[in-house]
Write a protein that binds this DNA or RNA. Structure first.
Length: 660
DNA sequence: AGCACGCCGACT
DNA sequence: GTCGGCGTGCTC
């Protein structure tokens, strides 16, 4: 079979930013090449071959000069459809990164046996269930009242929503208990599926994966489901990826990478808890699910749904701008939240379990009926400086960044802009001495045993997570983010270590803390009580009222005035000072209104500068940063290996000196 | 990254 | 006179 279009435009799978463009190769007679297939191409020397994907097949080339022929067509599987290339291209441009880096996140590694079986699937008989209605019986996941919105309204193409998920837990037919928050999302996905359309659900972590998997499997036929997550065995991941290439509608559930699943008839993208750090990709070019989802919803004209107990700062900002519309359950039954101050004044640091008596009494009473959750903060967090007199955080006058002591006995300096503070005075109380803040208190299970004698204690933490517990009375001590789901819901919860959580030295502290509290509250029965211990002021008021709007708006307006994300966009540049400085100077020079924080020395001649710019300037700044990065990559080899690392829009860049 | 081309010091 | 140092630049 000869080819009428003899030229293949190829995107190379390489880590070299200089090669981040399409290359033309001649297709030799008799070689069958279709867009999206994996190929091997010669690069500079015939001896070496680079892997790549065919972007398109054309009949003429812009390239002056002789075209080398494709070395090999790896397989006929069209794993990079044009729509996926277009999505990855825009993601790369937004992050000032290479498209091949993004493609590497989107397309799982090839697994030959799986691919061969998939390519010959037409020859194998269709499974009996395939022709059955994929959106079979939906008894549990019915659409509960959402302020006059129907599931159909939410699936309207191009609409954007912030969906407040309901509290509590619910039992699915197979007997598993899942958070009730899964229900409206499963219902939306089922509605789309019954109309012959696909949905992508991206969740932050393994607990949500498990819950949603159970909820989806209890409502939908397995033919209509595809799971894509990072901890999957490679064969299974590739199998499910290939499944999403098929035209049949599907509900894709997964972590970060699932957002790229190349389904062709996308009705909706659901991002669960977009404020969770796990939605940021730790590999270059560090895209965030929220941003990829926004780009993709635009490309696919799909509905975009940010589902969470409480909106993230970024989504709150979009709500206030009118970019997304908030929807909340008509009737929400949330457990009562009672802030309880410490009533005892004994030495809290040596006390075995530093608990207010009201909370202890409440927990003891609840333990006669069922499980009680105790949420604790994991030990070891970055401690900063605080006013010795009033405990207020030590902040930089110039940019409101956290103050650090670079060396013992030296003057404090700002971790964000590097300014050294010679004579500090507290803005709250005029105190003049800064002292290091204390570390979190490591509480042991044995400590709780003393306060609650004779009670079964179950521990769940990041290293040894427990997914679910039964309905029997037990004290479930869990680090934040590792709370098991209790059958029938918890009868009560104690949220401990609030002060430690809130004093974490990070831009995301309040947002993260509110989210982690609410997710614990959501696991408690609506008729249960949550004791928020030792927390006062606006956070305590917001939690007891069950409404964070005012608190978050206040925080956002402050960030607006001091130019911090998400009110502005940021780019973090770290690397040798001799490389960072000219980039910073050039970007500031050519894009009016861009300002820099830093450079801050990171040690070893490496510095970091944060650029701040408006959303309107984003595309221009990203383009310029990418051009600089490519220029440096092909520059003198002396500095290679420690090139400049560019990370866009990661508020974490502002957190610690050592991060990134 | 590789692997070319390219313009200055000690060698058969 | 050449052989070869690796600085700079390109890869269809």
């Amino acid at each position: 079979m000869s080819n009428s279009y003899p030229i293949a435009r190829v995107v190379l799978d390489t880590r070299l930013p200089q090669l981040d463009r399409l290359f033309d190769y001649a297709i030799e007679p008799g070689v069958e090449v279709t867009p999206g297939v994996r190929v091997k191409v010669p690069l500079r020397s015939n001896a070496r071959f680079a892997p790549g994907y065919v972007h398109s097949v054309v009949d003429n080339s812009e390239h002056k000069g002789k075209l080398a022929p494709l070395a090999e067509v790896v397989s006929q599987a069209q794993v990079m459809p044009e729509r996926l290339y277009d999505l990855c291209d825009e993601v790369a441009r937004r992050c000032a990164g290479s498209i091949s880096d993004v493609l590497r996140l989107a397309i799982p590694p090839r697994y030959v046996r799986v691919e061969k079986a998939w390519l010959s699937r037409e020859e194998s008989p269709v499974p009996a269930g395939e022709e059955a209605d994929p959106a079979a019986a939906l008894e549990v996941a019915t659409w509960e009242g959402y302020a006059g919105k129907s599931a159909e309204d939410m699936l309207e193409p191009g609409t954007r929503w912030s969906l407040s998920t309901p509290y509590g837990v619910v039992e699915v037919p197979q007997g598993a208990t899942v958070p009730r928050s899964t229900m409206p999302i499963v219902s939306l996905a089922a509605t789309a599926l019954s109309r012959g359309q696909s949905t992508i659900i991206v969740v932050p972590d393994w607990r949500d994966l498990e819950s949603f998997q159970k909820a989806l499997e209890s409502s939908l036929a397995p033919e209509g489901l595809a799971f894509l997550h990072t901890q999957q065995p490679p064969a299974q991941r590739y199998q499910n990826y290939l499944r999403t290439l098929q035209p049949q509608p599907v509900v894709v559930l997964g972590s970060r990478h699932a957002i790229y699943a190349p389904v062709s008839n996308l009705a909706a993208i659901v991002v669960l808890e977009d404020g969770d750090e796990a939605h940021r990709e730790p590999l270059a070019p560090y895209p965030h699910t929220r941003d990829i989802a926004t780009i993709r919803a635009g490309h696919d004209n799909a509905a975009l749904i940010f589902a969470s107990m409480t909106p993230s700062y970024a989504v709150r900002r979009w709500i206030d701008m009118g970019y997304v519309a908030p929807v909340a359950p008509t009737s929400s039954s949330r457990a009562k939240v009672v802030p309880t101050a410490l009533t005892t004044s004994h030495d809290s640091f040596s006390s075995p379990a530093r608990l207010p008596s009201l909370a202890v009494l409440g927990a003891k009473e609840a333990l006669t009926r069922g499980p009680v959750l105790i949420q604790v903060f994991r030990a070891g967090y970055s401690s900063g400086l605080a006013c010795e007199a009033c405990g207020e955080r030590g902040m930089c006058r110039e940019c409101h960044g956290p103050l650090r002591l670079p060396r013992q006995g030296s003057s404090p300096s700002c971790a964000w802009c590097g300014v050294t503070v010679s004579a500090w005075s507290c803005q709250e109380c005029r105190g003049s001495r800064l002292v290091p803040r204390g570390q979190g208190i490591g509480r042991t299970v044995a400590d709780f045993g003393k306060t609650f004698p004779g009670v079964t204690i179950i521990r769940s933490d990041g290293e040894h997570p427990v997914a679910s517990v039964g309905a029997q009375p037990a004290l479930v001590v869990a680090t934040r983010g590792s709370e098991p789901i209790a059958q029938g819901g918890y009868c009560a919860a104690l949220l401990l270590d609030g002060p430690a959580m809130l004093s974490r030295e990070s831009l995301g502290t309040l947002e993260d803390t509110l989210r982690e509290w609410e997710r614990a509250v959501a696991l408690v029965n609506p008729d249960g009580t949550v004791y928020l211990t030792d927390v006062e002021g606006p956070p305590a008021l917001a939690m007891s009222a069950g409404n964070h709007d005012q608190l978050v708006r206040l925080e956002l307006s402050e960030r607006e005035s001091i130019r911090l994300p998400p009110a502005v966009r940021i780019a973090s540049l770290s690397g040798p000072a001799s490389d960072v400085a000219p980039i910073v100077a050039a970007v500031i020079g050519s894009c009016a209104g861009v300002s820099a924080l830093g450079p801050v020395p990171l040690g070893g001649g490496v510095v970091r500068t944060i650029l701040r710019f408006s959303y309107a300037q984003g595309a221009e700044v990203a383009r310029e940063l990418k051009a600089w990065r490519n220029k440096l990559a092909s520059g003198p080899r002396k500095t290679a290996g420690e090139r400049v690392k560019i990370v866009l829009d990661n508020p974490h860049s502002l957190d610690a000196l050592t991060s990134e």
